[in-house]
Design a protein around this nucleic acid. Structure first.
Lengths: 146, 146
DNA sequence: GAATTTTGCTATAGCCTATAACAAAGATGG
DNA sequence: CCATCTTTGTTATAGGCTATAGCAAAATTC
């Protein structure tokens, strides 16, 4: 039928030549996939990322995490509340106003599973890239935001 | 001072080795930059993308655009309303239930400026990538979502 | 010690996406 | 030709993430 013909032949040539478009689509697909996998652990991508930072930097603060991940201080509040409510982290005063962030035993255990999921995901992601392009992706991407 | 020392030394090694993390950060930085530039034309990234598709596929439909860009039919409604309200596109019935999308003269004029902005943006984006990695980015990204 | 900055937080609004449901029209298969 | 999917465009609504403004208390700077 006519209309269907036109649709499947949708001209996307212009979009496909834009690296910016490919970057957006690839990132969206990637994030969506990872989010679905982390959901199985009751976690979100941002939460898992924050958790990784806290585990590697015991005693770090909400502000420091925010600066590192480019998350506004205000938006760190509900994020850390989720992690604390889930019993994954705890906050201990390190001076009169700052709160140090620390993993709980339960948090460490959960993170081990999360890490395994992320590592498997990253491995699959890399495997999807043709070998001859593989090693170029990370340096190319890093040039775009660092 | 102690605390500051710790913050600037934040351990991010684990994150930095993840292509997925770099992909997310690069895409966010890129989208943010482009969004800011398109704002000067009173347009959003998604709207501009849809506009490009409509211009290259006169008479295409809301559903077809949505399928092509992975946007739900429901979410196409406000998007197309914005384009129509701005006088950039018009809708003409192509059968009893489908509406064909067409650029207006004003839309074509606006799109010319938007295209120039996007092209300049994409050129700068590519220029930021070290030459030896440059040609690998697009094929690597496309392998991740197509 | 006064002025400035930082920290953690509340409240709120916006953008984009996801789901469910609906009526009308179109396509399909006997 | 008729009954049964399927498609289209739409409303309504909720959720996730982000951005802004403002605030009090503490820390830092000069």
């Amino acid at each position: 039928m006519m209309l269907r013909e036109e649709l499947t032949k949708m001209n996307e040539r212009n979009l496909q030549s834009y690296p910016g478009y490919a970057l957006r689509r690839a990132a969206n697909a990637m994030i969506g996939d990872l989010a679905k996998r982390l959901e199985a652990h009751g976690t979100r991508v941002v939460d898992a990322t924050a958790l990784l930072l806290i585990a590697d930097n015991p005693g770090t603060t909400s502000s420091a995490i925010g600066r590192s991940l480019d998350i506004q201080r205000a938006n760190m509040v509900p994020l850390l509340k989720r992690l604390e409510d889930a019993g994954l982290i705890e906050r201990k005063p390190i001076d009169g106003k700052s709160l140090g962030l620390f993993m709980t035993a339960h948090g460490e255990k959960q993170l081990a599973e999360i890490r395994a999921t992320i590592d498997a995901f990253e491995a699959e992601l890399i495997a999807r890239i043709p070998a001859k392009h593989r090693d170029h992706l990370l340096p190319a991407l890093n040039a775009l935001w660092r």
